[in-house]
Design a protein around this nucleic acid. Structure first.
Lengths: 151, 151
DNA sequence: ATCCTTGCTGCAAATCTTTGCAGGTACAAA
DNA sequence: TTTGTACCTGCAAAGATTTGCAGCAAGGAT
């Protein structure tokens, strides 16, 4: 696995090995803090800035997926080449779900053909409303409309 | 225009009026700082936190578009209901271009039908590589591969 | 015109992330 | 094995954005 890192043109350092291991072990999406704490345990003196830089490198190398939780912090997870997917994040409650890249392929092609832009939809985070919050929202809206009419 | 704000359930305050005006005037995508400086000139004592909160409100009210420049800061612009569009941002050079929402409609529908998630693609920022940077990137990659073989 | 409620603002501090710099080190080359 | 040079790291400080809180004020109710 570190070989993939090297192939991508990065040097192999203890920090990178540990951080990669932490991300690989901790299933799910971990925050930078979580990675920092877990990795710091095995590598005292590790610096948070290094964690961010390393995670960025791992992301660029295609080993790690990045997810913006629309809450002001980023989350990281091991990339599974078998299940490439984009993310859907609810901007109300923060819930996340996955979106198979196959759904996005046509769009990416379209964009590239017509604009020359290489959209990286596979690593994309789409925000919106999850089913539950969407329901709440419409309820609240109709409440507001109702109240407004009453007034 | 302030009426739209009120309709959306927000109060009309001097801060909001000025900030909305600033965004409306300054064509293009302004940073929070820019809005803060411009608005602060007409409303001394205005606080940066208020600018952020207000811009968020205006965004929720659908009056302002939000654009993540993938450079660690956000940019704001007046929403033009005539030209709804998503944004493409180059994660190398930061160049931005627009993407008509019509291209995204089918995808949004698909997502909603199959997952119930209401993706807000119209306000979305897609990252990737602009044509120029994409060219550079492939060049650099082949250089690296070449070098590696030589070695 | 006045009152009341609730949302809004300023301020200060917290959070999350990035950046500049000086020293350290992986790793290709000799 | 030794050397040289980028590339990395730790540290500290800057940047961008958010949040808690107490007082203020917009605008519906009276």
């Amino acid at each position: 696995m570190t070989e993939a890192l090297r192939q991508a043109g990065f040097r192999i350092t203890p920090q990178r090995q540990v951080i990669l291991e932490v991300v690989a072990h901790g299933r799910g999406h971990q925050s930078a803090q979580q990675v920092y704490l877990a990795a710091g345990r095995r590598l005292p003196g590790l610096n948070l800035a290094t964690v961010y830089r390393t995670l960025d490198s791992l992301n660029r190398a295609g080993l790690v997926d990045l997810l913006d939780d629309t809450r002001g912090s980023l989350r990281f997870s091991l990339r599974d080449p078998e299940h490439p997917h984009a993310h859907l994040v609810c901007c109300e409650c923060g819930a996340t779900s996955e979106l198979p890249v196959t759904w996005l392929a046509r769009l990416a092609q379209d964009i590239h053909r017509r604009t020359g832009f290489e959209a990286d939809l596979g690593h994309q985070t789409f925000s919106g409303l999850c089913p539950a919050c969407a329901r709440q929202q419409t309820t609240r809206d109709s409440n507001r409309a109702h109240k407004r009419k009453e007034a």
